[in-house]
């Protein structure tokens, strides 16, 4: 009896509480986060530009797969070369894997020869939770009208094997190129694979 009542209440809660989930085809969630240079960025600052969000954690084997094969850096160059705003987001809480100071973040960018527009330090996880980012790398594409067009994994092969980068279907890159070309995105959602984002509890 009590259990039934509880389940009913839970059902009511689940359905009525607004789920903060990003939706394809809907305006992307707003954010305001400081980057490694101390500059504050908001989504609204980039109106008229295509924005790519990349959740990252430099010690995660899945992130390393794409940095050590130069896949991520190549994509960053390709995209930023076409006027895309590429934001690498670190949502690791202090004391967890992937958490870095602003100096360390810049060092990582230099060491890895990475080319993001900025590295956002989201250690309280507010932006990560707004986007429901679950893993690193977790990729999002927002078009010039601020509409979310892609969310999911970087490619089709959920492994940490470097040799799989070349074999995979590059879901994220295909979607981003389609958005830049003004075409419809065929696959706008895919399985995000990688390490859990190390949120503060």
């Amino acid at each position: 009896m009590l259990k039934q009542l509880l389940t009913l209440l839970t059902a009511a809660l689940i359905t009525t509480s607004a789920w903060a989930t990003p939706e394809i085809g809907q305006p992307a969630p707003a954010f305001t986060v400081i980057d490694s240079k101390g500059v504050t960025h908001s989504l609204s600052d980039f109106a008229g530009k295509t924005v790519v969000l990349e959740w990252t954690n430099h010690d995660c084997p899945f992130v390393r797969k794409h940095y050590e094969t130069d896949n991520m850096q190549s994509l960053q160059r390709e995209m930023t070369g076409q006027g895309v705003v590429w934001l690498s987001v670190i949502s690791s809480a202090p004391g967890t894997q992937g958490f870095v100071s602003s100096a360390q973040a810049d060092q990582l960018t230099a060491d890895r020869n990475a080319a993001p527009t900025a590295v956002l330090l989201d250690s309280d996880g507010v932006m990560g939770r707004a986007y429901d980012a679950r893993v690193t790398p977790h990729m999002y594409v927002i078009d010039s009208n601020g509409v979310l067009r892609y969310a999911g994994g970087i490619d089709s092969l959920p492994t940490a094997k470097h040799e799989d980068v070349a074999k995979a279907d590059p879901y994220f890159a295909t979607a981003a190129r389609a958005v830049l070309a003004g075409e419809t995105v065929e696959r706008s959602i895919s399985r995000p694979y990688g390490c859990t984002v190390k949120y503060a509890d």
Partner: peptide, 10 residues
């Protein structure tokens, strides 16, 4: 495999 505690090692 991927073996994980707080962080993961393939």
């Amino acid at each position: 495999w991927l073996v994980c505690e707080d962080y993961c090692i393939p």
